[in-house]
Design a protein around this nucleic acid. Structure first.
Length: 576
RNA sequence: GCAUCGAUGGUCUAGAGGUAUGACUUAGGCCUUCCAAGCCUAUAGCCCGGGUUCGAUUCCCGGUCGAUGCACCA
């Protein structure tokens, strides 16, 4: 039996020793918040990313794009990260403690601390006490600590760049191109798997809070009026899971289990789109090996939501070490981001939605007599022309304001024409539904949940019960003895696996039991052993990691059988 | 970031002001007909920088990393 408090240390020690996760640049001293994926870790991470692609790229049809990890300042001014992704901080002059300036002020009874400017806040803080040492702060300086890594683009530092704190902005700024790619029709989605960077103040939870981390994000662009009509909603309508709503949280209640259909109908989840990806996320996480009982979906409390989101749900995975860990965020970002980028860049980010039938709309047009107007007003004529379009004419004429000057245009200088026009559609700003996955946290959760110790033949066996889908090495091949040609047969089998794209590892070192244990420890789900019967009848034993049971199968069938076992289409227990 | 504690082969560990103990692992060999057996051999270590000292892995100071508490965690 292993207790949960040991699990983190055991699993991280194993991960380090066997080449899953390493501290980065160890020979120079590691840096907190950064990790290296070793050979097995990189392989496992890639398998998890590929399963994610199966769900989002292949099944949903949302193509993957790849944007730079550095972007120019304007991108993050628009996104709100330059202004908003920063904390106001100050340092206590007595005990040198770093403090959240606005929190201290609010605790000291100062109102609107969060909206104050730095110097106002500093002045207000003079009477507040330091929560660390209890002394009055008197004189402090308030500064912004922005969690984005800042850099400069090109020589001479002319241009500010930031390492992206999320991959999402890349999909937003490419909106116009994406819309053309998807032939101007909603809904569509784009996804990205890549590195993001946050200069965390004090990352101290191993793989859980990293300064450089991998995100897998999908941005799904949808008509705001269509959010309750996901075209494939039927797939998950009956899918049920425990949901911890914000109402339940406020009442200290338990999660409520319900179907996605119910959740949407009862208004628990804001719309079908969000519910669809909540269910998809559940299915995806379970398929990489997360146990359902260690998985829950928690709704953000209203004051917890990010600046852009309306409804927001987190997939949380329970860790023996860290408790419930936010691993996936599912947010309805509305039209916040597209509006912000449209405003900042001056590029419209809208979709033209055609009506089924053109609508007859009455419209009043004011048509100026430019030949007279031009002569009379000369250089002001153009501005007057523009102003007249929105002017409200009376019998006498119309008043317009040009450069602050009020000008009266007599009625005979323009014609008012009321007409019925066909309006064929409208420009709308799509809403964005965003599932955002923390790949590193998923990797950690998979490792933690896979770690197990049992007793085999009276001795402790450490075994990583990784799903065959994510296990780095998929099958091990052993000759029982390194002689009598058993080794060459085993090498041929290994080669046959490789040509079928199966990650197979050959090992002839030491006793057979030791080799099984080695593979158990890195989570290899299956092992093939070539013995003397192989030479008689061309069969080998195929051993299952979890049950340690063996079956005899023909050598020729091995690649197909193992491929089926790895894909999950066959179970070991079903083999003869 | 602050405070406390810690850091010895790949892993776990013994130890002392004079370069280091043992086990496991790994590699090579012998042996071995299915779950870490045995025998022989080999590889490999005192976190980094400064100070004290004839001499520091050991003592002192600073740093890095890790654990714990506090703060922080769009």
């Amino acid at each position: 039996m292993i207790t949960m408090s040991d699990v983190f240390e055991n699993v991280m020690e194993l991960a380090k020793r066997r080449g899953f996760i390493w501290p980065t640049s160890e020979c120079y001293g590691a840096v907190a918040g950064f990790i290296d994926y070793g050979p097995l870790g990189a392989m496992m991470k890639r398998r998890i990313e590929d399963i994610w692609r199966e769900f989002y790229v292949i099944r949903e049809g949302y193509y993957e794009i790849e944007c730079p990890t550095i972007a120019q300042e304007a991108v993050f001014i628009a996104s709100g990260h330059v202004a908003g992704f920063a904390d106001k901080m100050c340092q206590c002059p007595h005990c040198s403690e770093y403090l959240r300036a606005d929190h201290v002020a609010e605790a000291g009874g100062i109102r609107n601390a969060s909206t104050m400017k730095n110097d106002e806040l500093a002045a207000a803080l003079a009477t507040c006490t330091c929560p660390a040492c209890g002394k009055v702060l008197w004189k402090v300086e308030v500064f912004q600590f922005n969690l984005m890594f800042k850099t400069s683009i090109g020589p001479g530092s002319q241009r500010t760049g930031y390492l992206r704190p999320e991959t999402a902005q890349g999909m937003f700024v490419d909106f116009a191109r994406l819309l053309r790619f998807y032939r101007d029709k909603l809904p569509f989605g784009a996804v990205q798997i890549g590195k993001s960077y946050r200069n965390e103040i004090s990352p101290r939870q191993g793989m859980i809070r990293l300064r450089e981390f991998t995100q897998a994000e999908a941005e799904i662009f949808v008509h705001p009026a269509e959010k309750n009509r996901h075209p494939r909603f039927a797939r998950y309508a009956g899918y049920s899971m425990p949901l911890l709503t914000y109402v339940q949280q406020q009442q200290c209640g338990e999660a409520v289990t319900m179907t996605m259909q119910e959740a949407v109908e009862k208004g628990v989840i804001a719309n079908q789109y969000l519910a669809y990806y909540v269910a998809l996320t559940h299915e995806m996480l379970v398929s990489i090996g997360i146990r359902p009982e260690k998985l829950r979906f928690r709704q953000h409390l209203p004051d917890e939501r990010a600046h852009y989101a309306t409804d927001c749900w987190d997939a949380e995975i329970h860790s023996g070490r860290f408790g419930w860990v936010e691993t996936v965020g599912l947010a309805d970002r509305t039209d916040y981001d597209l509006n912000a980028h449209a405003k900042q860049s001056g590029t419209p980010m809208t979709v033209f939605i055609q009506y089924d039938e053109p609508r007859k709309v009455p419209r009043r047009r004011i048509i100026p007599n430019m030949s007279v107007l031009g002569k009379q007003y000369r250089q002001k004529a153009k501005a007057i022309f523009a102003e007249l379009e929105t002017a409200v004419p009376t019998k006498d004429g119309a008043d317009v304001v040009v450069d602050g000057e009020k000008i009266h245009i007599p009625a005979d200088l323009f014609e008012v024409r009321d007409e019925i026009v066909d309006v064929r559609g409208e420009d709308i700003v799509p809403h964005v539904v965003e599932p955002s996955y923390g790949i590193d946290r998923m990797c950690y959760a998979v490792l933690e949940q896979a770690y197990d110790e049992d007793i085999a033949d009276g001795e402790k066996r450490v075994v990583m019960r990784l799903s065959p889908k994510v296990a780095p090495v998929q099958v091990a091949v052993f000759p029982l003895m390194t002689r009598d040609n058993l080794d060459t047969i085993a090498l041929d089998i290994t080669h046959a696996f490789h040509t079928k794209g199966i990650q197979a590892e050959y090992d002839d070192s030491g006793a057979i039991g030791r080799r099984y244990r080695r593979q158990d420890e890195i989570g290899t789900p299956f092992a093939v052993t070539v013995d003397y019967d192989t030479k008689e009848n061309n069969t080998v034993t195929l051993r299952d990691r979890d049950s340690m049971k063996q079956v005899r199968v023909p050598v020729a069938d091995l690649p197909e059988i193992v491929a089926g076992l790895v894909a999950g289409s066959t179970k070991f227990a079903e083999l003869k």
